[in-house]
Amino acid sequence: MDPVNYLYLAALLFTIGAFGVLIRRNAIVVFMCIELMLNAANLTLVAFSRMHGNLDGQIMAFFVMVVAAAEVVVGLAIIVMLYRSRHSASVDDASLMKL
């Protein structure tokens, strides 16, 4: 199969993720959408790795996965704390960090 199709799929996934981040208020959903975007990026990396015939992209993808996992841990913890203090998981409720 033509690897370019993976790129199309990745683009699609990324767009869905981006829209999710922009539209949804629930922090958990926003978080999942971010994961979707990250994985879209991973897919692209792997696809390019395949197209160019070297392994750098795949290695990079592993890095991204590890970082994403770490990020999930921190992020979820923040969301839980936020929910505890505000009894809501809406991102719009956390708007105090402005000038």
Partner: peptide, 12 residues
């Protein structure tokens, strides 16, 4: 600074 409204989604 008004652009800095605190809503994460607008930053996004």
């Amino acid at each position: 600074r008004r652009a800095q409204n605190g809503f994460a989604r607008s930053y996004a």
